[in-house]
Design a protein around this nucleic acid. Sequence first.
DNA 1: AATCGCTCGCTTTTT
DNA 2: GCGAGCGATT
Length: 698
Amino acid sequence: MSDTTTPPASLAPTDYLAALNEAQREAVTYGVATGEVAGPLLVIAGAGTGKTNTLAHRVAHLLVHGVQPDALLLLTFSRRAADEMTRRVQRIVAQVSPRLATLASGGFAWSGTFHGVGARLLREYAGRIGLDPAFTIHDREDSGDLMNLVRHELGLSSKAKRFPLKGTCLAIYSAAVNTQSPLVEVLQSSFPWCAEWEADLKALFRAYVEAKQAQQVLDYDDLLLYWAQMAAEPAIARELGARFTHVLVDEYQDTNRLQAGILLSIKPDGRGLTVVGDDAQSIYSFRGATVRNILDFPALFEPAAMRVTLARNYRSTPPILDAANRVIGEAGECFSKNLWSARTGTQKPLLVSVRDDADQAAFVVEQILARREGGVRLKSQAVLFRTSHHSLRVEIELTRRNIPFVKFGGLKFLEAAHVKDLLAILRWSQNLRDRVSGFRAMQLLHGMGPKTAARILDNLQTAPPGAALLAEQPVPDGMRAAWDEFARLVESAGAPGAPWPMTAEQVAQWYEAQMERLYEDAAVRLADIQQLARLASTYPGRERFLTELTLDPPEVTSDQPGVPLLDEDYLILSTIHSAKGREWSAVSVLNVVDGCIPSEMSTGTEAEIEEERRLLYVAMTRAKDHLELLLPQRFYVTGQSSTGDRHVYAGRTRFIPNRLLDCFEGRSWPCVDADAGPVMSVAQARIDIAAKMRAMWQ
DNA sequence: AATCGCTCGCTTTTT
DNA sequence: GCGAGCGATT
């Protein structure tokens, strides 16, 4: 509406905008009240600048101005982020009017990750793009299994010179798809040691794609790829563009070319498109994400996209922010926002030298307990680390002291063999052509091996659809009865309109009867299966259950000791990657030493090292009031020498060179005895390490 | 044809 | 410390 018209009487005063700062308000209101859909908007939102809040307000603002929830496409990095966004929007609009509260109470039909939304759109449009709407989705392991199957079929596994393993093949394939670049280039830049296999890999990938299509199976990458291909059809693109008048994307710095392509197809002129992100927090390039997406966004459009920068940090104290700014300021290519803090506080982040892994764990746990005594709940504290296994000692220490914790990242619930077994049965019942699922499911039967299973899968594939009866498949006489029972189970589970969650319960029941034979530790696994069955009952049906579980598995494994109850206070352990977007009052970062951060796996190229720097930046900017970086002087590595475990001496991460030490407070722990001399400074401690290293060889 | 037991090689981050 | 792969055994 123009400024000459008065707002409709139903419109409540926009009080909710008053709590925002100027830049935030600009991002929220840009183009909303003009009466037509606004041009493209890029919001550069530094760490802790109220990004989620701003995005939520923009969504709320759109609703207030009459946009229907169904017309919003809300793409976030995780489901958790989507849920958080929904909650906030609901809270905001509830203040404006009861009518809007009702409107938003159902949440947003089209919010979630690119993969999750893609899966749902593809099912809806399946008929028009030659896809079976009952397609199953393979997780990474399933994809690896299928890749392996094809790899064997093509005889690549028995080459004289060792052919890349399935995981490597899949990684190469995935990189090519997600970066949208030719195989040669991917091999050259990321997998130079596999370059000689280019021709074979090409054949392998062709066969892999054919296998997926024959089985009506999609992998993670396909969800984006099919969506992108679909959106490349002008008619469908127009339809999607009209249906979703507003598209909002969070964490845009971690999207890849495929995702950017999808957005551009739907919104070619950028009208109605809002992307939010922070190039300093781009940490997913290993997954094909490219920081160029966000950097090049404004110039994609004519006129260029509106750009709003949020630089006022509400999260961290000035010393913490200062240290983080300095760390990211060292980046070779620096786009830092130089965040400034609105808070008070004078405690510098700690740089704590400890002897080893064990002392690191002891120190961290002691500090956490001390802070809890001081009134900081466990839930407001977190321990962050580069790789999942870095937290092992801390986990042991926490368990020993009976401190509840939850760990994010690393091994997922989904990867446990027994969970995969159960899902394989359900997936196979949904789509009998899915060989990976069927192959796995059938071999749960005693007496069923790869040969018999493969023959049955062949029979099913060649039989006309609907004509193949599972029960009639040829199996050894000894297992006829068991097979009949299994076939009945799978067929009834796969029948259209099979009652849910009863189906899941029946399958779980059948599987539980097999577990004793399959696993020595069946008792522990049984609990998982029961939990899974309970989880199943919270979904409306099998299809949604399988899809959403595959794309967004529970982040916590239940075989951890002392899994806390929901209302209990518990500590968060998380990989830095999984800590994205979150914040805690106190944060401890483990192993801030070269070899861990940066990971020794990621020091090959300048770009990799820069990403590791941003990773440390992300870790540091999670802290609100208290930040400690741990420097074990030596840590154990496993399996690198024939003699087994050994320890190596480590130096402080290269991302905190001496010239940055004035931002930190150096400590040593355990404290050096007063009689033994002054407390070591960090610099002195390093000289000692060097001496020890020389001493090793004397 | 299935299964068990042995050896060899690899070992990040995740939708 | 773990899985994939292979050879021997049932």
